[in-house]
Simulated scan of single mutants.
Amino acid sequence: MIQRRQDAERERIQRCEAALRRTSLPARAAPDFDRALDDAMRGHAGETVREPHTWQPRMKSRDAGRLRLAAARHLFARYPVTPVLERIWQDDAGLAADEIRLRRRWYVIAARGGSLYKEGAGAWLTRKEVHAFLQSPAHLAFDTAFWLAIARSFTSDPATALRVARSKIARAPRGDIVFWREVARFFCAHTAPVETIDDLCDYLQACRQQDPGYCLAGRTLPALLRRMHEWHRDIAAIERIEALRRRAFGRAARGPAAPATWPGSPLADWEWAPSTREAKARGERYVVRQLKQAEDLVLESRAMRHCVSTYAGKCLAGQASIWSLRRCVQGRVDRLLTVEVDARNVAVQVRGFGNRLADALERNVLERWAQARGITLR
Rank of each mutant, 00 (worst) to 15 (best):
105 R>L: 08
105 R>V: 01
105 R>S: 13
106 W>Q: 11
106 W>R: 09
106 W>I: 01
107 Y>Q: 04
107 Y>S: 03
108 V>C: 03
108 V>Y: 00
108 V>M: 02
109 I>P: 01
110 A>K: 05
111 A>M: 03
113 G>L: 08
115 S>A: 07
115 S>R: 02
116 L>C: 13
117 Y>S: 05
118 K>I: 11
118 K>L: 14
119 E>A: 06
119 E>Y: 04
120 G>W: 01
121 A>P: 07
122 G>V: 00
122 G>L: 00
123 A>P: 00
123 A>R: 15
124 W>Y: 14
124 W>T: 10
125 L>Q: 09
126 T>Q: 01
126 T>E: 07
127 R>N: 06
127 R>G: 12
128 K>Q: 15
128 K>E: 15
128 K>Y: 13
128 K>I: 10
129 E>T: 06
129 E>H: 12
130 V>R: 07
130 V>K: 02
130 V>N: 05
131 H>Y: 06
131 H>M: 10
131 H>N: 13
131 H>W: 08
131 H>D: 15
132 A>T: 14
132 A>R: 15
133 F>G: 00
133 F>T: 00
134 L>E: 13
134 L>W: 02
134 L>Y: 05
135 Q>D: 14
136 S>N: 11
136 S>A: 15
136 S>R: 03
137 P>H: 10
137 P>A: 13
137 P>V: 02
138 A>H: 12
138 A>Y: 01
139 H>F: 05
139 H>A: 14
140 L>M: 13
140 L>Q: 11
142 F>E: 07
143 D>T: 14
143 D>N: 14
145 A>W: 06
145 A>Y: 03
145 A>T: 10
146 F>C: 06
146 F>Q: 03
147 W>P: 02
147 W>E: 06
147 W>S: 05
148 L>A: 08
148 L>M: 11
150 I>D: 04
150 I>A: 12
151 A>M: 02
151 A>Q: 05
151 A>K: 05
152 R>C: 08
153 S>D: 15
154 F>C: 14
155 T>P: 10
155 T>C: 14
156 S>M: 06
157 D>L: 03
158 P>M: 12
158 P>D: 14
158 P>Y: 02
159 A>D: 12
160 T>H: 06
160 T>Y: 00
161 A>Q: 05
162 L>W: 04
162 L>I: 04
163 R>Y: 01
163 R>E: 09
164 V>M: 02
164 V>P: 04
164 V>E: 06
164 V>A: 02
165 A>F: 05
165 A>K: 02
165 A>V: 10
166 R>F: 00
167 S>A: 08
167 S>T: 07
168 K>P: 00
168 K>R: 13
168 K>H: 12
169 I>S: 09
169 I>C: 05
169 I>T: 03
170 A>L: 06
171 R>M: 11
173 P>L: 07
173 P>Q: 02
174 R>T: 12
175 G>C: 07
176 D>Q: 14
177 I>D: 11
